[in-house]
Amino acid sequence: MNYLAHLHFADADDQHRLGNLAGDWIKGRLEAQPYPPRVIQGARRHRFVDSFSDQHPAMRTARQCLGADRRRAAGIITDMVNDHFLVQHWPRYGDLPLEAFIDDAYAGLERTRPLWPAPAEPVITRMISHDWLGSYGRLEIIAMALERIGGRMRRDPGLAGALPVLQREYTALEEQFHHLMADLEATLNPRR
């Protein structure tokens, strides 16, 4: 899952959200990290969500939809496009209106700025200043972000030119997203 999904699956307190968002930048054993307990708990949730998603049959199917030539990039592509689907279907999954949730998440992240892992600082700063979360509703933005990620890699694993594939496989990817979300919601929020 990607940024919006990690924030969605976090508890509604600032430190837990930070840990969920910054989980990829908090390396090693969590118990040995110099962060407050709620940040560590959020990072633990981040790792759980990533592991659950990576192993879920729906995401295996979604990755296959992208074709053999995008096999190495399929995990990144599905993570990003899942945030797109989360925006598209926010009323089904979110408790607040999307704009209110995003504003609250950004404000909470700003309040935790002193705790941001150093490698996350430029990314979170750009996310907030350019409203990445709000822009994920446009598939073209997802494709552009994938192009940028691919451009930063030594060799693009198949991120460039993903838009036609995403458009062609949109319905199949969307269906797999809903399967994944149903199982994640049932696992993380069993009373919902």
Rank of each mutant, 00 (worst) to 15 (best):
Y136A: 10
L21R: 01
I77S: 03
N20E: 10
D54P: 03
A182P: 01
K27W: 09
M181N: 08
W90M: 11
I102Q: 05
R138N: 15
I77R: 02
L109W: 04
S51V: 00
L180S: 01
H89D: 15
W132D: 00
H6Y: 03
R45S: 14
L166M: 01
L184T: 09
A182W: 09
T171P: 00
I76D: 00
H16S: 14
D13G: 14
L7T: 10
L188R: 09
A43V: 08
L184P: 08
T112M: 04
G108I: 10
N82Y: 15
W25N: 11
E99T: 15
D183R: 00
P119T: 01
Q176V: 00
H16N: 14
G161R: 07
Q88S: 07
Y136I: 10
R72Q: 15
H89V: 03
R152N: 13
D156K: 13
P91V: 03
I102F: 08
F101H: 08
I77D: 04
K27L: 11
G23P: 11
D79T: 08
H8L: 13
L18K: 04
A162K: 06
S135L: 08
R148L: 09
G134S: 04
Y136L: 00
A32C: 11
W132T: 10
P119C: 09
Q64I: 11
N2G: 00
Y35F: 09
A32V: 05
A5W: 08
V165D: 13
H56C: 05
A5L: 00
V81A: 03
A172Q: 02
A118M: 13
L184C: 11
G137T: 04
E174D: 12
M1T: 12
E174F: 12
P34E: 06
T112K: 12
Y106S: 02
A100T: 14
Y35K: 08
L146E: 08
A182E: 12
N189Y: 15
M181D: 01
E169F: 01
D24V: 08
Q33T: 02
Y3A: 10
R138M: 03
R47F: 03
Y106C: 07
H130Y: 06
A10N: 01
R191F: 11
V49A: 02
Q176L: 05
R154W: 12
H179N: 13
A145C: 10
R113G: 11
I142Q: 00
L180F: 00
H6I: 04
D131C: 07
Y3I: 13
R92N: 06
A12P: 14
G94Y: 05
F101L: 05
H84Y: 07
A160M: 08
V87C: 06
A100S: 13
L139W: 04
H8I: 05
D54Y: 03
R17V: 13
